[in-house]
Nucleic acid binder design. Structure first.
Length: 324
DNA sequence: GAACAGGAGAGTC
DNA sequence: GACTCTCCTGTTC
């Protein structure tokens, strides 16, 4: 990708993500610094749902709760490899035994880290994919128009509860953004320039990774999210009902704001009306969108037979006439 | 007070 | 013309 600011990203013994992918963001690579875990400035406060592999609590959860195998492997290393010689061979000297045991532990740790790395990178890519689909923008910031940049800024503002920063980056294309250094970002927004720079860097890293690792190679990891992006690009206008279905199909990310009550019947509930309206506003570049307007648009579907109220009408509950 | 229902006009593609 | 946004009034929960 050859973006500025990438030159400093050297590969070090303490940056395993670099080993997996030499262009990965250094702000992501801090993950393995287990002894001094603290998020970089740019990632403080990232919501778990959005970047589950990056935020420290998520990393803990990933490793300890969702993947007990990691814990198990760390606490009880796999048995040592069988001896290569006959049993009568005298046991190794204490120092040798220690060496071989620490070597095995090292290998186990290495394996654990490798698997965690793969998961983290996979999560980052998946979340970038999801955002691309929702915003209808390309995964690579270099391809963004001024409108795409504004969408991404609004999205980032919303997701990470930043104050309004999009106005400070007007009239800039994705290429312009990518040519800016962190100092330039700070010039536009003294307080949050570095945060935005960090997020943009994650996107650039993800795009670089996709370039190096084409879809065929990643099929086993997350083929559905990848094909999502490929099917939705280039940009196509989206209908509200399609957008709602997209959210419903990503329960991992959006079940807190919208979820199925009965998927077979197409009945869903909007749990957080303001959030859904905000997402729709970002998607359509309508900052003034609210639930009142969104629900009016939903009601337009009544006549068209796309959405209706379920037989037992409940607040914030709707039904697709033709379930997914 | 929030959600719901629907009319009406305007904007965008 | 289709689709959505926006504003509005009135009703229901």
């Amino acid at each position: 990708m050859g973006s500025p600011g990438r030159e400093h990203m050297g590969c070090t013994a303490h940056s395993p993500l670099y080993i997996t992918h030499p262009h990965i963001n250094p702000r992501v690579a801090w993950l393995e610094e287990a002894e001094d875990i603290k998020p970089p400035r740019g990632l403080i406060g990232l919501p778990e749902v959005s970047w589950p592999g990056i935020y420290v609590p998520c990393y803990d959860r990933l490793v300890m709760e969702e993947n007990p195998w990691v814990l198990g492997m760390t606490e009880a290393p796999a048995p040592a490899a069988p001896p290569s010689r006959a049993p009568e061979v005298s046991p190794p000297a204490p120092s040798q035994a220690q060496d071989s045991s620490s070597e095995v532990e090292g290998q186990v740790e290495e394996r654990c880290l490798e698997q965690v790395r793969t998961m983290v990178v996979g999560e980052v890519l998946k979340d970038v994919d999801t955002a691309c689909k929702l915003l209808n923008i390309a995964p690579d910031p270099l391809d963004w128009s001024c409108a795409h940049v504004q969408k991404w800024l609004l999205w980032t503002e919303h997701l990470y509860k930043l104050p309004q920063v999009s106005t400070m980056f007007q009239e800039l294309t994705g290429r312009d953004l990518c040519s800016m250094t962190e100092a330039h970002f700070r010039q536009h927004s003294l307080q949050f320039g570095d945060v935005l720079y960090a997020h943009l860097d994650i996107w650039r890293s993800a795009a670089a990774m996709k370039e190096r690792c084409p879809p065929e190679d990643r099929k086993s990891a997350d083929d559905d999210s990848w094909s999502d992006v490929m099917c939705n690009y280039p940009s196509q206008p989206i209908h509200l009902w399609q957008f709602l279905q997209e959210l419903l199909l990503k329960p991992h990310n959006y079940s807190r704001c919208i979820r199925w009550l009965n998927k077979e019947k197409g009945i869903f509930k909007i749990e957080d009306s303001a959030h859904v309206a905000r997402l729709w506003g970002i998607r359509k570049n309508r900052p003034a969108m609210n639930y009142d307007k969104l629900s009016r648009s939903i009601r337009q579907y009544y006549k068209k037979g796309i959405i209706r109220k379920p037989d037992v009408s409940r607040r914030l509950v709707y039904q697709f006439v033709n379930p997914v």
